[in-house]
Amino acid sequence: TEYKLVVVGAGGVGKSALTIQLIQNHFVDEYDPTIEDSYRKQVVIDGETCLLDILDTAGQEEYSAMRDQYMRTGEGFLCVFAINNTKSFEDIHQYREQIKRVKDSDDVPMVLVGNKCDLAARTVESRQAQDLARSYGIPYIETSAKTRQGVEDAFYTLVREIRQH
């Protein structure tokens, strides 16, 4: 089974770092803004072998026109913010609204991801993020692309959301 996953969120929150940590098991430290990259990885989730087709997208506003296209083809979405960047957390709402509009559905598989949880300088409390996820009816997972904490959990949870859909 193949799953088309799309990673969305503001610029600099760590979308590529999360994806590369999942696929290649290493942490990319330097920031190089993405336009669009796709990665494929075969994994076993709950005993089922599946192929993850992951689209890593641009957070930069100037590429926002490309969003409709990949939102149409994606089956599930990782909505990523950084726990030390309140603005990126506030941006999640717009991504969710755009996904709902493009998919013409209120019920699209999504996982809210709070990345950079290895950093002490948190400005978005776990509780705020949990409340937001609960209001959307989606899971919330904290990750660190640096330490790998929660990385597999985030992507695998999204696959489970798609399966249950």
Rank of each mutant, 00 (worst) to 15 (best):
T1G: 10
T1H: 10
Y3D: 03
L5W: 03
V6E: 00
V7F: 06
V8F: 13
A10M: 06
G11T: 13
G12I: 12
V13K: 01
V13Q: 13
G14P: 00
K15D: 00
L18M: 14
L18R: 01
Q21G: 13
Q21I: 04
I23F: 15
Q24K: 04
N25I: 05
H26K: 04
H26Y: 12
V28R: 03
E30Y: 07
D32W: 03
D32Q: 04
D32V: 03
P33T: 02
T34Y: 00
I35E: 01
D37N: 01
Y39K: 00
R40K: 02
K41E: 10
K41M: 06
K41N: 14
Q42W: 06
V43C: 13
V43L: 12
V44F: 09
V44P: 08
I45P: 04
I45F: 05
E48G: 08
T49F: 05
L51S: 13
D53M: 03
Q60D: 14
Q60F: 15
E61K: 12
E61V: 15
E62I: 14
D68E: 09
Q69Y: 12
M71P: 07
R72V: 08
R72H: 11
R72P: 11
G74Y: 10
E75Q: 12
E75P: 03
L78F: 10
C79K: 02
C79E: 01
V80E: 02
F81A: 07
A82P: 04
A82N: 15
A82V: 08
I83F: 15
N84G: 15
N85P: 01
T86P: 14
K87M: 12
K87Y: 05
K87I: 07
S88E: 06
F89N: 03
F89V: 08
E90K: 09
R96G: 07
Q98A: 13
I99H: 02
K100S: 05
V102D: 07
V102R: 06
D104F: 08
S105P: 06
D106Y: 14
D107C: 13
P109H: 10
M110I: 11
L112W: 12
L112R: 01
V113R: 02
C117G: 12
D118Y: 01
D118P: 01
L119Q: 14
L119E: 15
T123Y: 11
E125M: 10
E125K: 05
R127I: 09
R127N: 08
Q128K: 10
D131V: 05
D131N: 07
A133K: 03
A133V: 04
A133Q: 04
R134S: 09
R134T: 05
G137A: 04
G137T: 04
P139Y: 05
P139G: 05
P139E: 08
E142K: 06
S144D: 15
A145K: 02
K146E: 14
K146A: 14
K146Y: 14
Q149Y: 06
D153W: 06
F155A: 04
Y156F: 11
T157R: 11
L158Q: 01
L158V: 06
L158M: 06
V159H: 04
V159T: 05
H165L: 13
